Amino acid sequence: MIRLHIFPDALKGTPNPSQFCVKLEAVFRLAGVPYEICPEMNPATGPKGKLPFIEFEGERVGDSALILDYLKEKIGLDLDDGLTSSERALSHMIERRVEERLYWVIVHSRWIDNWMQTKAAIFGNTLFFRSPISFRMRHAKASAARLSGTGSGGIRERKYISSARVILRPCQCCSVTSRSSSARRRGLQM
């Protein structure tokens, strides 16, 4: 059985504070792959120094994209099975756009502009300076400097929704077009 190491549930209204942990858990559920959740607060325990990571057949694999590639090879896990090459390409483009662009909007919102709320939601009443990831989070200014290189550093609080819409709009158009063409190919009406 796959052992999935992810952050414990912490933020109200989300299954996990990390979208990459949510992604893997969703894939496993959709594919009916049995797995065991191993809550982990210290990302440094993972083979890539971050969460999520898995343990399977004596191997430890980190990074959600690498985990999915590994499991495709090991157990044939492929949610894109049955898609045309064009649909696979579109799926890949949407996934990358969301993961590489929207991710930074979320990071900035949570860890820079809403730090106090995020800290309370994730760490609660524990002594933050004693938590395993506190060292990383103490350097918010360094994080903000890195964010400026992603094109997200200048985002201010009220701009998040419009930034997210700009990022997601092309994905929505592609998704509707893809569903329609896929349905037509199968003889279904949309």
Rank of each mutant, 00 (worst) to 15 (best):
A140Y: 07
E57T: 07
I112C: 03
M116N: 08
E73G: 10
R60E: 08
R60K: 15
P47R: 06
S91R: 10
L83M: 08
I75H: 02
S109Y: 10
T150H: 02
S64V: 06
L83A: 02
G82D: 05
S131E: 10
E55C: 06
L51Q: 00
R97W: 02
M41D: 13
F128W: 11
D81L: 15
S64L: 06
R96W: 04
I133F: 05
W104C: 00
A44F: 04
Q117M: 09
G62A: 13
H108I: 04
K74P: 07
K72R: 12
I112Q: 02
W104Y: 15
R110H: 10
D80M: 09
G76Y: 01
P132T: 08
R130H: 05
I133D: 08
N125C: 04
L71I: 09
V107E: 01
L147D: 00
T150F: 12
R97S: 06
I94Y: 08
D69K: 15
T150V: 07
R130A: 10
F128M: 03
R97L: 09
G149L: 11
E100S: 12
D81E: 09
L127W: 12
G49Q: 05
L51I: 03
P43V: 01
S131M: 13
A144L: 06
H92D: 07
I37L: 14
L102I: 04
E95M: 05
T118F: 15
S109G: 12
G58M: 03
G149P: 06
I37M: 03
M41I: 12
G62Y: 03
E57A: 08
E57G: 10
T84G: 03
I54H: 00
G46I: 02
L79V: 08
P52K: 01
D113Q: 09
K48F: 13
E55V: 04
M116H: 14
N42E: 09
G46K: 03
P43A: 00
C38I: 15
R88I: 03
I133C: 09
S85F: 06
H92I: 12
L147I: 04
S85N: 07
A145I: 04
A120S: 13
S86T: 07
E73Y: 11
V105T: 09
R138P: 01
T126S: 10
E99R: 05
K72W: 07
G124V: 11
E100K: 12
G76L: 05
S143W: 12
I106G: 01
S64Q: 06
T126P: 06
D81S: 08
I106H: 05
C38R: 15
P52W: 00
A144G: 07
E36L: 04
I122S: 01
A44T: 10
R110W: 05
F53M: 03
S85Y: 11
S109E: 07
H92F: 13
C38E: 06
S148I: 05
K72C: 11
F53T: 01
R110I: 05
K48D: 13
E59D: 14
T45A: 12
T126V: 14
I75L: 05
G82A: 07
P43K: 01
K74T: 04
M137G: 01
M41G: 14
F135G: 05
A145N: 12
F128S: 00
I122E: 00
R138T: 03
R88E: 02
F128R: 01
P132W: 03
F56P: 04
G76E: 07
E95S: 13
K72I: 02
L66H: 14
F135P: 05
R138L: 12
T126E: 13
M116F: 10
D78R: 02
